[in-house]
């Protein structure tokens, strides 16, 4: 019983970290990057390349890879999201362009690197840690801790700093924010940079344990997306709760009925949440105006 709870919560950490990449951009731009799984792959491949081919040390390789992934995220916003989200809330073309991008990245990396998993070769906390009497890998625990730390940092930045104030303003009313001399587009781009940095970091840390392959992303896309929806895409705390719920449900059902039904049950929870409370457990209810 306890093992299920611990495993669920700890894997939930990874989902939460990636889901934070959804939430950040959704708060400020009302858009999501559906190629988020592929940005994990990009981050991981970059880190592998920087470490293995360029010869950077582990931490430096991770830092540079995370930064570059973030910048690619900003570029994605500028090229594939912003021009395709100009016609109000019902304009969902950005969704299709980012899905298109995910196909491009998967295809490109598969052609270049092959579909097989390659070990990242560094960055893995090679130990088993005991949490509440249950053994989990050090890497998973690290990911969970990173997710919590990142969430707390984001909450502090957004509620305490000037930049955070700008972001909250954009999230509430982008047009009026522009009247204050603040560029909503710049805030949006920045959110994409930060969001994809987090995603890249998550990808690298995850790949450090499991190895990197072009197929790394899609399963995590669904998990992170589920965590985001369950917790609520308008709340920074949402991913943590959503990740925990999704992690617990999939772990519990997975242990009882097999991993297939674990995933199925996770998605059923998502669908249930969308139906009962579309804004997510912690999300803000958006008033419908006519």
């Amino acid at each position: 019983m306890m093992d299920v709870v611990v495993t669920g919560l700890v894997t939930g950490g990874l989902y939460a970290l990636i889901a934070q990449g959804f939430v950040l951009t959704y708060i400020t731009t009302n858009t999501l990057n559906f190629a988020i799984g592929e940005f994990m792959v990009v981050g991981a491949f970059l880190a592998m390349f920087l470490h293995g081919n360029v010869g950077l040390t582990g931490l430096l390789a991770i830092a540079v890879a995370v930064l570059v992934t973030g910048l690619l995220g900003g570029l994605t916003y500028r090229v594939l999201v912003l021009p395709f989200s100009t016609e109000g809330k019902h304009d969902t073309r950005w969704l299709l362009t980012t899905v298109g991008l995910s196909f491009v990245i998967v295809n490109l990396t598969t052609n270049a690197e092959g579909a097989n998993r390659q070990p990242l070769g560094f960055g893995n906390v090679d130990s088993i840690v005991t949490v509440l009497g249950e053994r989990v890998t050090g890497q998973q625990l690290l990911l969970a801790v990173v997710a919590v730390v990142v969430t707390v940092l984001l909450v502090v930045v957004i509620s305490r700093t000037r930049l955070g104030g700008d972001m909250r303003a954009v999230s509430e009313d982008a047009e009026t924010t522009a009247l204050m001399g603040i560029s909503p587009r710049r805030i949006g781009a920045l959110s994409y940079v930060v969001a994809m940095m987090l995603v890249g970091l998550g990808g690298i840390l995850w790949a450090a344990q499991t190895g990197v392959s072009p197929g790394l992303g899609p399963p995590l896309l669904i998990a992170a997306f589920s965590a985001g929806i369950i917790g609520g895409l308008t709340s920074l705390w949402g991913p943590l709760l959503g990740g925990a719920v999704y992690g617990l449900v999939t772990a519990a059902v997975g242990t009882a009925l097999g991993s297939l039904w674990g995933e199925v049950s996770g998605l059923l929870v998502v669908i249930a949440v969308l139906i009962v409370r579309p804004e997510g457990l912690l999300g803000r209810r958006v008033e419908i105006k006519v």
Binding site: A169, E172, D173, E175, M180, G181
Partner: peptide, 20 residues
């Protein structure tokens, strides 16, 4: 068009961004 979820102080502070 105030930022209704923010305080009066925050609203006025954000107005200052155009003057900064």
């Amino acid at each position: 068009r105030l930022f209704g979820r923010q305080t009066v102080a925050e609203n006025i502070r954000i107005g200052g961004r155009a003057a900064s």
